[in-house]
Amino acid sequence: MTEAIKIETGQGYWAPLIFVVALLGVLILAVLIWSRGRREYKRGTEQELPFLSGEKVENPRVGALHLYWGLAEALRPLLERLRGWHSGNINEYAGWFLVILAVVVLLVLA
């Protein structure tokens, strides 16, 4: 039975059911703390509106590209280069295949 619930990883083991029990414990604790919180939240008032730098925005919507915007912005030079690499030109794709083939031939024959 013990084999069925855990997997050996060489240096230890991973037992998801124990993890789930621990996770439930933490969740219960979180709910307890949350239930002792302040009860001023009112539905249907302007408390429901998202806080966007204190400004009122018509029809606020946080799209996919707004999330992790900073990360994507910081990585922009890298991402642009990678996008340029995926150029869509079939000649380049075939060229990369030849490059890999050459590398493999050199590695294997050496």
């Binding site: 996008r83 995926h86 150029s87 869509g88 030109n89 079939i90 000649n91």
Partner: peptide, 10 residues
């Protein structure tokens, strides 16, 4: 022309 058929890129 393969250079112009590049809708799928990036």
């Amino acid at each position: 022309d393969a250079r112009k058929i590049r809708d799928l890129r990036g």
